[in-house]
Computed example of a mutant assay.
Amino acid sequence: MATNIQDRKRINGPTRSVEPISTAEPVEPFASGRLDGRALDQVRPIFMKTGSLDSQASAQAAPSGSAYYEQGKIRISCAVYGPRQGRKSNAKMGIFSCDFKYTPFSCSWRKSHIKSSDEKEISLILEQAVAPAIRLELYPKACVDAFITVIESDGKAATIAAAINCISAALVDAGIELYDSVAATSMALNGTQWISDCTQIEEDSTSCSLLVARMPSADEVAYILQHGKTKIEQTEEGFQACVNACTKVYAVMCRYLQGSM
C-alpha cells in the first residue's frame, strides 16, 4: 500500500518565481561629474596599517609581515610568509608567489567559496607586478608567499591596483629586501577622457580600463594591463595619467611606512 512520504530535508521552492520590481532609477555616473564629487584625476582616500594580522595568529602561524589597506570602499588584507624553505632545493634565486581570493560577500560577481579561474589569473598578475621589486637573488632556495584577501571590492581594476599596494606594504613589514615599493593605480576611459580610480558603477559605464604598477624611485614600470581598445595617443595619455597617480599613491605609502618604522 503506497503512502505519502514527505521529504523534510528539502525545502521545496515555489513552482514559479517572479522578478522583484525595482523602483530605483538607473544612475548615470558622469552625467553631472562623479558621484562622490572627486575630480577626474583624483584617487579615493587611502588608509593603511601594517602588522594588522600578527596579533591574531599563534606564534607558529604568525605571518612574517601583514598589511590592511583601504581605498574608498575597497578593503584588502595581505599576509606575507617568508623567506622560508622553497620547493626547489637547487634554485639560485628565490621564488615569489601570490594567492588572491575574494570573500564570497565582497562583490557582485563572486558567488562561491571555491577558487575561480579569475582569481588564479589575478594571482598571476600580482606575481608579475610585484616580483620585479623583490631582490630574489638574496634568497636562494627560498620562497616568499603573499596571501591576499579582498574583504570588499569596488571596481575590478581598482581592486587589483589596491592589492598590489597592499602587498608592497606587507613586504616592507616582513623585512623583505626590495629595490623599491610598487605603487599601482587604474584608469578607465569614458568617451575621450580618462577617469582615475573608478568605482564599480563608473567602471561598468566605461569602454576601456588601464592599470599601471610602477616603482617611482627607480623610475621603472613593473606591469601594465589594459582591457579594451584605444588609439595609440589615448593609451599614451592614459599611461601618463597613471604614472602621475602612482607618484601620489607612492607618496602616501612612504609617508605611512616611514612613520610606522
Rank of each mutant, 00 (worst) to 15 (best):
N4Q: 13
I5K: 03
K9W: 13
R10Q: 13
I11L: 05
R16S: 12
S22T: 15
T23D: 11
V27H: 06
S32I: 12
G33M: 00
D54W: 01
S55H: 12
A57R: 11
Q60T: 15
A62C: 14
S64R: 03
G65E: 00
A67I: 06
Q71Y: 07
G72E: 01
R75M: 13
I76D: 00
C78M: 05
P83N: 10
R87P: 05
K88I: 14
N90D: 15
A91R: 03
G94F: 03
F96N: 01
F105N: 13
F105C: 06
W109Y: 15
K111A: 08
K111V: 10
D118F: 09
E121S: 12
I122A: 01
I122V: 11
L124E: 08
V130N: 02
A131R: 06
A131V: 03
L138I: 12
C143I: 08
D145H: 04
T149S: 15
T149N: 10
T149F: 12
V150C: 05
D154C: 09
D154Q: 07
T159S: 07
T159N: 06
A163S: 11
I164T: 06
I164R: 01
N165R: 04
A170V: 03
A170Q: 03
Y179H: 09
V182W: 01
A183L: 11
T185V: 10
T185F: 01
L189F: 08
T192S: 14
Q193N: 12
W194D: 02
I195M: 06
D197N: 10
C198I: 02
L211C: 01
L211W: 05
V212F: 01
A213E: 07
P216G: 11
S217P: 04
A218G: 09
A218R: 13
E220G: 05
L225N: 04
Q226M: 14
K229S: 07
I232C: 08
E233A: 08
Q234K: 06
G238P: 07
A241G: 03
V243T: 08
N244C: 13
T247Y: 10
T247K: 15
K248Y: 12
V249W: 06
Y250H: 15
Y250W: 14
Y250D: 07
A251H: 14
V252Y: 11
C254A: 13
Q258E: 14
G259V: 02
M261D: 10
